[in-house]
């Protein structure tokens, strides 16, 4: 069975392809000079997608005082890099919508959202681009689990729900032939995601193995632990099996500040339900 998974994944047959709007955007992202108008024109060819992008932009996580009503305006407010990542993340979440999974999608996205929001708040003293990036990394960190769930729901259920065993990276590899970090990374690479997001997805349980982007990887790693401990949503595993003091140290937080950070993050998570309703 492990072999068949490796083959399937190796050929990337089962991984969803980026939609046309993203393929067109990727084609212009590589150009040196592009304008906000060009990006907006492509995004706005898909109305449903535009609505979801604006929904996220107007969510409490970005904290704008007034409502952003167009993609072009979102670009001018958030900056080119942040909006590019946000568009990619929205699109990937979209790709998993309206399908049958052996996982409760509402709870899955709530877990993902909580990790994103907590990761962002853990980096409270960094610039807003880094915080926004942490949020999106958190949103997508467990996307590999959705691929497992889609590829073989029976096997997924057997592993995550019936065995009630430690669902760590080593056991996943033994059981499926690949772990959800690598699977998610393959998808991120197939979609040409920024290297930072692919690295976080690939190392959120193994932060010491990350090649670069240590701050983002550490933030998502610790945020994942916190979201599990608070039982916010569900990503189909119960026990936290790894903690790396180095990842904690990378964040440079004292415990007093950590407490404040949790309050702020949970306030944002509480306001989140409406936003995530778009994706399940």
């Amino acid at each position: 069975m492990a072999d068949s998974y490796a083959t399937m994944v190796g050929e990337l047959k089962e991984l969803p392809s980026p939609p046309m709007v993203i393929q067109r955007l990727q084609a212009i992202f590589v150009k040196n000079e592009i304008t906000g108008r060009e990006i907006a024109q492509i995004v706005e060819t898909d109305q449903g997608f535009t609505a979801r992008v604006l929904r996220l932009v107007n969510s409490p996580f970005y904290g704008f005082a007034r409502k952003i009503v167009s993609v072009e305006e979102a670009i001018s407010m958030l900056g080119f890099n942040s909006i590019k990542q946000l568009i990619l993340a929205t699109s990937m979440m979209n790709a998993f919508k309206n399908q049958q999974y052996a996982i409760n999608m509402r709870k899955f996205w709530l877990h993902s959202l909580a990790v994103g929001v907590i990761a962002k708040h853990l980096l409270y003293n960094r610039n807003s681009d880094t915080q926004n990036e942490a949020f999106l990394c958190g949103l997508l960190h467990d996307v590999g689990r959705l691929i497992f769930s889609k590829m073989d729901p029976m096997k997924f259920t057997a592993f995550y729900f019936d065995m009630k065993s430690v669902t760590n990276i080593e056991n996943e590899t033994k059981f499926f032939g690949i772990d959800h970090q690598k699977l998610g990374e393959l998808l991120a690479k197939k979609w040409n995601f920024p290297e930072s997001i692919a690295t976080v997805i690939a190392n959120h349980h193994t932060p010491l193995e990350a090649k670069g982007h240590n701050l983002l990887v550490s933030a998502v790693n610790i945020a994942d632990i916190v979201a599990h401990a608070f039982a916010i949503g569900d990503s189909a595993n119960f026990y936290i099996s790894d903690f790396y003091p180095e990842a904690w140290k990378t964040l440079g937080l004292d415990f007093e500040r950590f407490e404040k950070t949790l309050h702020n993050a949970l306030d944002d998570v509480d306001k989140s339900n409406e936003t995530m309703g778009e994706f399940h």
């Binding site: 430690v166 632990i225 916190v226 599990h228 401990a229 608070f230 039982a231 119960f238 026990y239 936290i240 099996s241 790894d242 903690f243 003091p245 904690w248 415990f255 950590f258 407490e259 949790l262 309050h263 949970l266």
Partner: peptide
């Protein structure tokens, strides 16, 4: 729930503190 969830990493001093803060929050 917190104790059970973090039981495998509770031997780290940092996790004990984190766990206490999570309960307090």
């Amino acid at each position: 729930h917190v104790d059970k969830c973090l039981s495998m990493v509770m031997h780290h001093d940092e996790v004990q503190q984190i766990s206490g803060i999570i309960k307090k929050v």
